[in-house]
């Protein structure tokens, strides 16, 4: 007598044995026993009830949501409305009083002003005290959303080389604004390789994960392999790696 395979018996237990197998089971005790065992196991699985999660999970998650909500900067709608009205009025005034022939000169002038402003900021980062340099970095952060490559590379250089960790941290925060640019993301990932301050490392990891930058995987792995890295930092790094991989 040819016995049924485990696959056949399992599939029969999941559905129903076909006529041929049913006939065999009626005649073969060994196969019938195995078949009944499969039925029994599948039945326990089917009847196994889900447990109710403890209430503490809800409390913890709600607390985390509340904390996160508090960390999101609040927008003031009346300020936004006021800004929109002001912008509209400015547009109207500029459109009405500036003849089209003057527009090119105005644009050129604006770009020169912007360049000068940037150069002033770049130069200002050079020799001053740490608190002054932080102020300059913050000014850059508050600057136009699009900035020159020179300004970006100055911020990167500040991030990588400034003596003060506070200035480096401010530079990292300023660069976050331009993270939509691939070159910025890649330079931030590269910077992660030689940052040593955990606060800056955490900040860079967080930005790169949010931007889903795969180039961060390598430096994060290296960080995980570093025996001197703090435990909390490694936990965050592992978490980031899980998300990115």
């Amino acid at each position: 007598m040819i016995h049924a395979t485990d696959e056949q018996l399992y599939e029969a237990a999941e559905a129903h044995p076909d006529d041929e197998l049913a006939l065999h089971l009626a005649q073969c005790e060994a196969c019938r026993n195995r078949y009944e065992e499969y039925c029994a196991v599948l039945q326990v699985i089917t009847e196994s009830k889900d447990e109710e999660p403890p209430q503490s999970i809800r409390w913890e998650v709600e607390a985390a949501i509340a904390e996160e909500r508090a960390s999101i900067p609040r927008q003031k709608p009346y300020l936004q409305i006021a800004a929109a009205i002001l912008l509209l009025l400015t547009g109207y005034v500029v459109g009405t009083y500036l003849a089209p022939t003057h527009r090119k000169e105005v644009i050129a002038l604006q770009s020169q002003v912007s360049l000068l402003k940037e150069m002033a900021l770049v130069n200002a980062l050079e020799p001053q005290t740490a608190s002054e340099r932080i102020q300059v970095v913050n000014q850059i952060q508050a600057n136009e959303p699009t900035v020159s490559e020179k300004l970006i590379s100055t911020l990167i250089r500040t991030l990588n080389t400034d003596d003060s960790p506070n200035v480096r941290y401010a530079a990292a925060q300023a660069l976050e604004r331009y993270i939509h640019q691939e070159s910025v993301r890649l330079q931030l990932a590269a910077s992660l390789e030689f940052q040593t301050d955990p606060l800056i490392q955490l900040s860079l990891i967080s930005m790169l994960v949010e931007a889903q930058e795969k180039a961060a995987i390598k430096p994060i792995k290296e960080l995980l392999g570093n025996p001197n890295a703090p435990k909390e930092l490694k936990q965050q790094a592992q978490l980031a790696l899980d998300i990115l991989t």
Partner: peptide
């Protein structure tokens, strides 16, 4: 929450660990 908690419970067999892991999942989502 119930699905995730029971996924952990069946996978680890540990009630306390499953609760911790479940809350950690939602905190990661956040």
């Amino acid at each position: 929450q119930k699905r995730i908690y029971n996924y952990f419970l069946k996978s680890t067999g540990d009630v306390e660990e499953s609760a911790d892991l479940t809350q950690a999942v939602f905190i990661r989502v956040l």
